[in-house]
Simulated assay, not measured.
Amino acid sequence: MVMEFNKELDARGLHCPLPILKTKKALADMLSGEVLRVLATDSGSVRDFQAFAKQTGNDLLEQSEENREFIFFMKRK
């Protein structure tokens, strides 16, 4: 099943904390209930996105890894 999203953020090549900071900024520009797809290559981002979701109340709908790239779907609270 393909996850639908409203906006995409390419954070590939960025290291902590930039993927999270850019995600926070992108979510701030979105409406409640919209979904942001984030692409990242930093292996620490898996742990960071889980913590970010808990701290902010935004939902981490899905996370996966393909070819050393991490894909996150965040739903704006």
Results as ranks from 00 to 15, higher is better:
R37H: 15
K24N: 13
K24F: 11
P17I: 10
A11R: 01
K7Y: 14
L18T: 03
M30C: 13
H15V: 08
G57E: 07
P17S: 13
A40K: 00
G44Y: 14
M1R: 02
V35K: 13
K25L: 12
R12T: 11
R47T: 00
C16W: 14
Q63C: 04
I71L: 03
K77D: 07
L21I: 11
F5A: 06
T41L: 02
L27P: 00
S64W: 03
D59L: 14
A53H: 01
F52E: 03
G13K: 04
K22D: 11
A53N: 00
L31Q: 12
K7R: 14
T23Y: 11
S45A: 13
L61E: 03
F70M: 10
A40C: 15
D59K: 11
N58P: 02
F72W: 04
D10W: 14
S32P: 00
E4G: 11
E4C: 06
D48K: 04
F72Y: 14
R37T: 07
D59C: 02
L27K: 08
K22T: 07
E65C: 04
A11P: 00
R76I: 06
A26E: 15
F72Q: 04
E66M: 06
T23R: 09
D42T: 05
F52H: 01
Q63H: 04
Q50E: 14
I71C: 00
D59G: 02
V35I: 15
L39E: 06
M74P: 04
Q50K: 11
M3H: 12
Q50N: 10
G57K: 05
A53Y: 02
H15R: 14
G57I: 11
N67M: 08
R12F: 12
H15T: 06
F70W: 10
F73V: 03
L39R: 03
M3A: 09
A51D: 08
L27W: 08
L61V: 02
I71S: 00
F5I: 04
F52W: 07
D42R: 05
A51C: 06
H15L: 15
C16V: 10
D29C: 10
E4H: 07
C16M: 14
T56M: 05
L21M: 14
T56Q: 03
T23L: 12
A53P: 01
V38M: 05
N67Q: 10
G57R: 09
T41W: 10
V2M: 11
A26K: 13
A26Y: 14
F72V: 04
S45I: 03
V35W: 13
K54H: 00
F5M: 07
V35D: 06
A40Q: 04
D10R: 12
V2K: 09
E62H: 01
K75S: 08
E34P: 01
L21T: 05
E34I: 08
R47Y: 10
S64M: 00
V35S: 09
F70L: 13
L21Y: 12
D59E: 15
R37K: 15
E34S: 08
K25Q: 13
S64T: 07
F5Y: 15
L21H: 08
S64Q: 03
R68Q: 02
S32C: 07
V35M: 13
V38S: 03
N67E: 11
V2I: 10
A11L: 06
N67I: 01
F52G: 03
L36T: 00
M74Q: 08
